[in-house]
Simulated assay, not measured.
Amino acid sequence: MDYLKANISEPLNFVACGNFISEENWSHMKRINDNFEIIIGINGTAYIQQDHEKYEITPGKVLLLFPGRVHKGYSPSRAGTSFYWMHFLCKDEYSVLQEKEARMELAPLQTNPYFSKVKESLSIPTFFSLENPEKVIILFRQLLHITQSGYYSKLAADYLATLIMIELTQQVIDNTFKTSDGGGINNKKFINILEWIRFNLQKDLSVKEIAERFNFNEDYLTRLFKKHLGVSTLKYINDMRVAKAKELLTQSEASIKEIAYFCGFKDEKYFMKLFKEYENLTPTEFRNAYYRTYINNV
């Protein structure tokens, strides 16, 4: 399944929205949009096909239609079928991720705040279910009110459209682990592992130590990380350490050696080598390049 990943450091461009209610049997017209469209089921079932994939949009289901793709109704919906819809554009370039890539980026956000590179992006799958549709419906009603009330600035609709997409992303994140393994005990345990690693980054962590602490063997622990995040346990630990190092480099006066030690690197030279592999910059170059950006970001 495809995911839309789009930068939201600036709001999305709102195009149009509405609450569709069919008064008789209805089927969506065939067309190709030049923008994105979100459809959220309210009542009945809407049958919409995007390229070769068919979707049944029932209450609480969300469908994302991509620009440049053919979408159409493939079966008639009964009278009374209704859904909210919204068209929007991304101001910056966007990317389309495969499910494995998207889950790798989204899953750490459930418990780990250091993955700041994702926090300024939304990530929405093509088709998913809402855990709390009421929250999104309230936002949609506010958006409809704004667009019909002659607000003095179009930015009001842009920001509210962006907030809707943030809420959708949040619900996707909240459901990331619930949908794996049927929400079993291993999922909860895995979340606890991520949180424990976050609080113990400064220690000299090993895969063996983590596995023993949570009563797993090393191979099984590695398989869990591969399944949920798409990376090895060691790669995840290094990801977290480099992300924390970036935060300290831009928000503190600590020396490179102090930052390396605080992030669990006992060898300063290894830290510098690994950091450059991740960022294509040395820690000092990174600090000099982004320091002013963070100072002015208030």
Results as ranks from 00 to 15, higher is better:
227 K>L: 10
191 I>T: 07
241 R>D: 02
270 Y>N: 09
193 I>L: 03
208 K>M: 13
258 E>Q: 13
225 F>E: 01
248 L>R: 04
253 E>N: 15
265 F>C: 11
209 E>H: 11
205 L>Y: 02
241 R>C: 04
242 V>K: 04
218 E>C: 00
224 L>W: 07
200 N>F: 11
202 Q>Y: 09
202 Q>C: 04
197 I>L: 12
252 S>M: 08
270 Y>M: 08
188 K>P: 05
191 I>R: 08
188 K>D: 15
248 L>A: 08
201 L>E: 14
203 K>I: 12
194 L>D: 11
245 A>R: 05
275 F>R: 00
243 A>V: 01
190 F>D: 11
242 V>Q: 09
241 R>T: 02
263 C>E: 03
207 V>M: 13
277 E>A: 13
257 K>S: 06
261 Y>M: 09
200 N>S: 11
246 K>F: 07
233 T>P: 10
220 Y>I: 02
225 F>L: 09
223 R>M: 12
242 V>L: 13
242 V>A: 02
198 R>D: 12
261 Y>H: 15
214 F>P: 06
220 Y>H: 11
275 F>A: 04
236 Y>K: 06
202 Q>N: 09
189 K>M: 11
223 R>H: 10
204 D>W: 03
241 R>G: 01
237 I>V: 13
210 I>A: 03
276 K>E: 14
258 E>K: 09
226 K>A: 09
228 H>P: 05
196 W>D: 06
260 A>R: 03
232 S>C: 10
250 T>M: 08
260 A>S: 14
278 Y>W: 10
229 L>T: 01
201 L>W: 03
189 K>Y: 01
265 F>P: 05
277 E>Q: 15
213 R>G: 02
266 K>G: 07
275 F>E: 01
243 A>T: 11
213 R>I: 02
280 N>C: 14
271 F>R: 04
219 D>A: 12
220 Y>C: 07
253 E>I: 06
233 T>E: 04
222 T>G: 09
198 R>C: 00
212 E>D: 13
192 N>G: 06
211 A>S: 09
210 I>E: 04
254 A>W: 10
224 L>P: 02
234 L>H: 14
196 W>G: 00
214 F>L: 05
251 Q>T: 15
240 M>A: 12
219 D>H: 13
215 N>D: 15
271 F>D: 01
210 I>G: 02
195 E>Q: 05
267 D>P: 00
197 I>A: 09
280 N>W: 15
265 F>H: 05
231 V>F: 04
192 N>S: 12
217 N>R: 12
263 C>K: 04
238 N>D: 09
191 I>D: 00
201 L>V: 14
203 K>Y: 12
208 K>T: 12
239 D>M: 01
221 L>P: 07
217 N>K: 11
199 F>M: 15
193 I>T: 03
213 R>H: 06
203 K>M: 14
239 D>E: 08
